[in-house]
Amino acid sequence: MSRALGIEARDRRRAMLLTAPALVWTLVFFVLPFALMAAISLWQATATGMIRTWSLDNYTAFFTRPAYLGAALNSIEITVTVTVLSVLLAYPMAWIIAEEVPRRYQRLALTLAVIPFWTSYIVRSYAWSLVLSRKGVVNDWLAGWGLPLLDLANSRAAVVIGFTHFFTMLLVLTIYASLVQLPPNLRRAAADLGAGPVAIFRHVVLPLTLPGVMVGAFLTFALCIGDYVTPQILGGGKDLALPQLVMLQVGRRADLPMASALSIVLMALVTLAYLAMARWMKEPGK
């Protein structure tokens, strides 16, 4: 008995010892910097650095300066548009791969659909700026067919296209995963009870895959709203997004307190989206 206890205590000590490095690393290089950033967001920037007077001035500035609040609204608008568009494009694609493509080619079809996912994201945005530029490929085709040219580069549309491209790939993966998990019996049962294909989709398949879609949509929201590169390369410097505003504070204005406050706002937005999703998932009947 005492020997067994001794082994268990030793097991536990060993487990703690093994976990300690990762825990300490996380505390020192993740939790601590984050706490520090939260503190700095309450300080003020001066010409030479920061003064440690505690106030909510940076947050007040966020809510009162139109440029700051506007950037947050831009980010939310872009992110919501991208999330909705990506889900709408990805769902049918995932459906076709899961239902229409023969089983042994499904993996290939999926892999193909996500290969460009692995291009460097800077390169991917640059590639879209090539495609959409005034003399780019899209306008070249349009001209070839005698259609009017589009002025897409350096605009919100370009940002939305660039993002939608990336997140469509991500969502095809996640939605496919929730589609193949559906037991086929459920659909057969619905069909036996007289439901047509549309009714089966509406009342069986869609409700059962919606949680997976929501998780993917949340992931899209969180990654999209925090990205600096895509709006910076494709947006043309108009209607800044929140991360661009953060980087502007870090760079040109050397205002670390304001950059920290804006980052906290960014995190708050992601947290709100998360809570909304969690609450939706808990609702009865879902």
């Binding site: 993740f30 969180a222 709203i225 925090g226 990205d227 953060v246 980087m247 920290s260 980052s263 960014l266």
Partner: peptide, 9 residues
């Protein structure tokens, strides 16, 4: 957590 926030911290 967004990479931007981790980097800034």
């Amino acid at each position: 957590v967004s990479y931007l926030v981790i980097g800034l911290g």
